[in-house]
Amino acid sequence: MKRRRVLFIHLSQSRVFLQKIAVLVCLLFALVLMTLSKVEHPFVLRLKQNLSTIINPIVNIVRLPSDGVYYVYTSTHRLIDACSENKALTLENERLRLVEQQNRILKIENKFLSDMLNYMPFEDVQFVTAKVIALKNDGFVRMLTVYVGQKNLVKKGQVVLHRNNVIGRIDSVDGAYAQVLLLSDISSKIPVMIERTQTRGILSGNNTGTLNLLYPSSDFNEPLMIGDKVITSGVGGIFPSGLTVGRIIDVSTHEIKVEAVESLDSLEFVYIVDYHLETPQDGAETTP
């Protein structure tokens, strides 16, 4: 009887020891995963891709009830506002007709000048409209998950726009879903230019609502001002030049703050544009 009790004590001690070992092994596994993520090891990328193919459809289903309620709310709201909106649109339509005429003249003039300069525009620019299925917009990460379908048109590095303004770029594609790294994410850095002064710099995210303009070039003596438009510079070959990014909202001695043009609050669809530019390779630095 005594021997049996001793045996049970030994078993329970060894069980506690094994539990402690399991905790240590799991903690070690987590650290290894983090390290492998940092070096973008193929194992982690494959694991993420495989898990994403399971998780993204679940996220897509989970958001259905919320989307339904939101759809009913917005539809009702639109119906209520329809009358006043119709009046405003009629006025706008008349104004746009005049603008269209002016544009036609400008288009002809532009074609004439382009021919004179032998300018080669971007040809064969393709885009895909993708539905936003999840937005991670907290202090730890700023990313979108979008549904892109099974046609394999979307690739890593492609530009993501909303109403012709840049909001980010494709970070990874997992089957029918793609992850979009938003400009405000801490790991996002894109080469930009101030439209008015032609000052170049790097626009960096910091996981907040504003962006930081780093290393502004000092080739031009003209000071930067609040309200200056920030556009992509095209340096580095990831983004084409001239796409609107945001506006300067703070010019202090320490840092220049930029506010993105696009608000992410009501994002439903985005455009993924393929400019046929060089896309970054896995593991390569995305900054120029």
Partner: peptide, 19 residues
């Protein structure tokens, strides 16, 4: 995976919380 953060982050935090 759901939060799109670096793999292993929540795992490490939860293990410490567990202990």
């Amino acid at each position: 995976m759901f939060g799109n953060v670096v793999l292993g982050t929540h795992m490490a935090v939860f293990i410490v919380v567990y202990v």
